[in-house]
Design a protein around this nucleic acid. Sequence first.
DNA 1: TCCATCTCCATGACACATCATCTATGGAGG
DNA 2: CCTCCATAGATGATGTGTCATGGAGATGGA
Lengths: 176, 176
Amino acid sequence: MTEPRWLAADEQRAWRAFLLMHSRLAARLNRQLQAACGLSLADYEVLVHLSEAAGGRARPHELQRALDWEQSRLSHQLARMRQRGLVTRERCGEDRRGAHVLLTDAGRQAITTAAPGHVETVRRLFFDPLTEDQVAALHTLAGQVLARLDDDGAPGDPEAPRDEAPRDAGGSGRRP
Amino acid sequence: MTEPRWLAADEQRAWRAFLLMHSRLAARLNRQLQAACGLSLADYEVLVHLSEAAGGRARPHELQRALDWEQSRLSHQLARMRQRGLVTRERCGEDRRGAHVLLTDAGRQAITTAAPGHVETVRRLFFDPLTEDQVAALHTLAGQVLARLDDDGAPGDPEAPRDEAPRDAGGSGRRP
DNA sequence: TCCATCTCCATGACACATCATCTATGGAGG
DNA sequence: CCTCCATAGATGATGTGTCATGGAGATGGA
């Protein structure tokens, strides 16, 4: 083992600032959503994708890829959301292993109520203090890191299913 | 409520790229640490701060501020770490409400073993694909967002305990 | 056809985070 | 001294994420 390439002081500061920014931001967004309408950030993301899907209906596996979540995380999440009446399940005709998840009225109501406040918070806390150039630079930077994450591969997973760099996918700023 | 300021398409993409970068990065770092030495990222952070403290000893409240964690999160975390033999507790002389947490030999061993691989992974996945200017720009950007998070205040928490935003390091190319 | 294998999804165990609440001590003012 | 409140920290309930595993249905040869 060769001597590790330690981080320089300014690298450490940048790294920690990045982590701190994310954790505080996520905490704020979670609390805002929770306070405003009893949703978590995870609920919100699922609801966004469902509400954008045709008929408010989607296959779990499709959601999984879109959200880039672990399969079991999504499964648990959907179970909880079903229990709270935000979504329901339907057996799937074409592929009887699978299922359809679909938005209930309560679910659509929840996302419609939640979206404006959430987007406003994202804008106020994140976009407002930044310039357009800074946002663009962050986007570029994230793309580079994601590309590295991809082709560095899960070590021991030599052939990764190549797909999305920050291609679209509607996120926080949706129109209900 | 006025019409919300929805996110433009490129803003959405940037935002989602940022979130995706963080979640994938965190997942990778967690797995690497877990595989290499059975530590979580949270364990690692606690151990780092403890190992940098004089005598491998610190007050919980001090750790809490340094890590920017919720109090109960730290308390639970320390309980688990104590149970696994990474740290121990000591009653505190000066303030008998409090305690000292101190690194055990096993804890010091763990952080010593973990650090090179962790730093190497951070460098490979995060710093290597970026230029110095990009890192500096990210640092600046994070500072701005953190400042906003601070003075936006926890709504209903008008007087926040002012503390660190990453002081910007001079000289690196940037233009707000 | 039959069997191996892959895909889609659920589940239980456990680690972790947050919230609300609780104890005990410290400190200031009467 | 005592009272009131702030601070340090622990704890239990609950929601959330990951890992390992399992099972049913699809798929593709031999």
